[in-house]
Write a protein that binds this DNA or RNA. Structure first.
Lengths: 207, 207
DNA sequence: TGACATACCACACAAATGTGTGGTATGTTC
DNA sequence: GAACATACCACACATTTGTGTGGTATGTCA
């Protein structure tokens, strides 16, 4: 334990309250507009703007947030922001020209992940295991899930099992009853009790 | 030619000046923070806030922009923007709690697609065909490619063939020579001349 | 005990920002 | 010519938002 080398970038320690403030800022920055000081206070239940300023001060000091003085909503996250990627062509449909002039459109996160869904309905899970390989979903892929209490036959869903485990499987109906099926012949179908927590809408894999 | 039905959504006509205002808003929204009315005026050379309000009025009326009254910087584009998605847990690692407090981090486009690569080096292609199914890459997946003139053994690459076709295959070296291999036994390896145009870094699939 | 961090509140004030009214001028359309 | 859109400006005013000072209370560390 002692003498261990720390090679990872240290995450600054945040108290749970500070974490909540940061998470709210993240949410708002991601959703639409960074919040004002008073909006933060309202959300987190602070009755004084001074309290919020105190929190911002520590977040700035810990390097998680930047601000421009005297400008409204001018709160920036130190974490990187998202942006767009050009779609240049379709593979095997001819030679794509890598120049800007040939750009067909842009892939953006919103379009890519969610279509027109809202922020609150969506979350991401990292896939573990090979139970869905035949559906092209591999170990360590990121699954983007839209929260839903139900789904249709053949949808791939995130389901909560009785043992409190969450799993990604294909939903099947047979004779009016639903069960879960892996996309890998070495896994047996699951007939036990489960609860659908969401529907798979996007898979992302990094190499 | 004549009598053709137009099914695309008509883009509202904008005067060049209106276009400039919209573009500035786009730029600011993408970069960091939507502008204030006065910031727009400053950039575009208007000396009156009323002028800017007139422009916003037409942009709103033409459905390109939304606003919240009396809120600073509360200008939204009707076009969709990108944003972040919370990573809440890892599938099969226990029950994820969908509340704010449990957010582990955020997936953002930058992180997801590119790691730390720059914008200019990256483009996207839509995959056609089933030649890579065994690598979990399916028809109509989106392949994010980093431009590179070469790659390593076993990398999946976008390659330009002699017939001007671009294809996604695994790069293999054998006896000092490179060839391309599909990830599907029904496709034969490609030994003909080819040029690597980039390396696969991310796959995205929407359901 | 003193020093310091966390975790708040109240309230005054200043600066930034949005709202609104009333103008001018130049076109185009009917 | 009347009606209307575009393309501006000046300026007062209201509201929102950020700043700053001075508190209270609780806990930890040394």
């Amino acid at each position: 334990m002692c003498g261990m080398f720390i090679t990872m970038k240290e995450k600054p320690y945040l108290t749970p309250k500070q974490e909540r403030v940061l998470n709210f800022i993240r949410k708002r920055v991601g959703e639409r507009l960074p919040p004002t000081i008073r909006e933060i206070g309202e959300e987190l239940g602070f009755k004084s703007t001074g309290t919020v300023r105190d929190y911002l001060k520590v977040l700035i000091q810990k390097g998680l947030v930047k601000r421009m003085n005297s400008k409204s909503r001018a709160i920036e996250l130190t974490e990187r922001a998202s942006f767009k990627i050009p779609i240049i062509g379709t593979i095997m449909a001819g030679k794509p020209n890598l120049a800007y002039e040939e750009i067909q459109g842009y892939v953006d996160a919103d379009d890519l992940f969610l279509g027109r869904l809202g922020f609150d309905d969506v979350f991401a899970l990292r896939v573990k295991g090979d139970s869905m390989v035949d559906a092209g979903i591999l170990d360590s892929d990121i699954a983007i899930i839209k929260k839903r209490p139900n789904a249709d036959n053949n949808d791939i869903v995130a389901a909560l099992l009785d043992n409190n485990e969450v799993t990604l499987k294909r939903l099947r109906s047979k004779g009016g009853k639903f069960h879960l099926e892996a996309a890998n012949p070495s896994y047996a179908p699951i007939f036990e009790e489960f609860k659908v927590i969401g529907k798979l809408i996007t898979v992302i894999r990094k190499y």
